[in-house]
């Protein structure tokens, strides 16, 4: 600890260095400790606690909240969980599928054009989700074309809005995740080595084979970022399902929000939050292990 070391061209001792380093990180780390790490611990503890009828916590260990999630009497909750996972998977795969052609389309243009189209992707990304979801609510209203078309096709009753419905929630979710998929995929597509693609074409590979053998492996880093950036928010979303769905279209996010708000069941909300963390981190790490490491952002 006290032997002299050279650090960034400066002769010093390790202990002095660490003392200085501590001064740098002290502020940030104590902030995160007080407002993030310790409360996470509290969340964990509270998920095993009881509450009385007014929502006040009682110091008594119980597995009640977890039983409520997984127990036999939890039909509706289990359905909400499965729905959340399915919808998140749909949103992720739909936005990645759309993001590939969009990435190719953007990368095709000249420098100015590329900036223009990329900016068109980034503007929604920097616009609040509430406003974007609100705009879907407007577009799917009975008075506008999409609802009229759907009514004409017999999908909905004439004069009704398309929301609240799962179609509306799914549309809103895909539109919300799309920019998160396009930006990292575009970065990968822009750096593609086209000679490999041409080589595959010269060897008479079919279009699908070209994509899977020459393009997909090269865009894997971008793809894994895209999947994580779309899947995690889609799992926990509650704005979209709240505004375009409603009471009958709850996802796990709505369930958690309800426990911390009008439901006044903080232990149950805490247990659900833990479950959501495990589900998303599990999904992400599973994906990371199969894909490559996530380096670009």
């Amino acid at each position: 600890m006290t032997e002299p070391t050279v650090w960034y061209g400066q002769l010093t001792t390790r202990r002095r260095l660490l003392a200085r380093g501590f001064l740098f990180i002290a502020g940030g780390i104590s902030w995160l400790a007080v407002f993030l790490l310790l409360p996470s611990l509290a969340l964990f503890v509270v998920s095993f606690m009881k509450r009385d009828a007014d929502g006040v916590l009682i110091w008594e260990l119980t597995l009640e909240s977890f039983a409520r999630i997984f127990g036999s009497a939890s039909g509706e909750n289990a359905r909400i969980l499965i729905r959340s996972i399915v919808l998140a998977l749909i949103a992720t795969s739909a936005s990645v599928t759309l993001a590939y052609p969009m990435g190719f389309f953007i990368a095709r243009g000249s420098r100015r054009r590329r900036f223009f189209w990329l900016a068109l992707v980034i503007v929604p990304l920097c616009t609040n989700l509430v406003i974007r979801t609100f705009s879907w609510k407007l577009l799917l209203s009975a008075q506008l074309m999409p609802a009229k078309l759907a009514a004409w096709l017999g999908w909905i009753d004439p004069g009704r809005d398309i929301y609240p419905s799962w179609t509306a929630v799914a549309l809103g979710l895909v539109a919300a995740s799309l920019p998160f998929a396009v930006v990292p995929l575009y970065t990968s597509i822009d750096r593609l080595d086209w000679s490999l693609v041409e080589a595959a074409q010269d060897l008479y590979a079919s279009r699908l084979r070209v994509f899977f053998a020459a393009i997909l492996p090269q865009t894997l880093p971008g793809l894994s970022v895209a999947v994580i950036l779309t899947f995690v928010p889609a799992m926990s979303v509650f704005v979209v399902s709240d505004m375009l769905g409603g009471a009958k279209h709850w996802l796990i996010g709505n369930l958690i929000q309800h426990q911390f708000g009008p439901g006044r069941n903080i232990p149950y909300g805490a247990a659900l939050s833990l479950l959501l963390i495990i589900l998303t981190l599990g999904g992400v790490s599973l994906y990371r292990r199969n894909g490559r490491s996530v380096e670009i952002l």
Binding site: P233, S236, G269, I277
Partner: peptide, 8 residues
């Protein structure tokens, strides 16, 4: 996920 962040 931001909702668990909010819960914390």
């Amino acid at each position: 996920p931001d909702i668990t962040f909010a819960a914390v």
